[in-house]
Amino acid sequence: MLGSGIIKGLAVTAKNFVGSFHDPERLPTVEYPEKRLTLPEAYRSFPFLVFDGENAIDGLRCVACKMCENECPPQCIYIIPERDEKGRPVKKPKVFDIDLSVCMGCQICVEVCPFDSIKMDQVFEVAATNRFEGLIAHREMLAKSNTYYHQIRPTEAAEVDTRLAEEKRLAEEKAKAAAAAKAAAAAKAAAAPKPVATTAPASATAPAAAPASPAKPAVAAPSPSPSSSSSAAAPMAAAPKPPATTP
């Protein structure tokens, strides 16, 4: 009969009307500034730089290898490496800018970073009134501590720390072996990594050490269980090459 479909429809809306007063399933609105959803661990917004220790700038894991700058699809990263008095690069970024208005949060920089130094943040309220200044994040703004990284992504950060510790241990073993072989060279090598904070990879040795770690778990992947992390090997960073220094 004409109208039966309309009546069925009216019944559905009535059900939803009543349901919206008692059934959370039918009123899923979260009133945002007062209430917030807990973000899933995988949630990503914009990149930030991880530093170890106390000093934000000195502790940066970044060695200004420019790998992320080269791979960034919208080209929103800008890096100038630090140089010492003689003009040699010292494996620190002097300038590390990310234009957040251009960044599309694809996390390819995270995947390609061989030093676990750039990670995706979870801060999404980055609105600014000034498009030119307010949305270009500088080195100081980007640097966030490893503790913070542990807060936002506990699983992933723990994995990264384990891996870095492992790499460091291997590097040290290698350095010791080298020291035993060549006393003079060893003395020099031991003296080299001095200003770097405790858990940071010894920047000089990291590229050499990386191939030594056979199964490097996925950089960005919070792997479900440690057991599968070896099988779920890294897509990008399986074998990080020595940093390509592009001018």
């Binding site: 004409l2 109208g3 039966s4 479909g5 309309i6 069925k8 429809g9 019944a11 559905v12 809306t13 059900k15």
Partner: peptide, 11 residues
């Protein structure tokens, strides 16, 4: 429920 809502609706 969705189909009940509008699929049979005369309009």
């Amino acid at each position: 429920e969705y189909e009940q809502f509008l699929t049979g609706n005369e309009i």
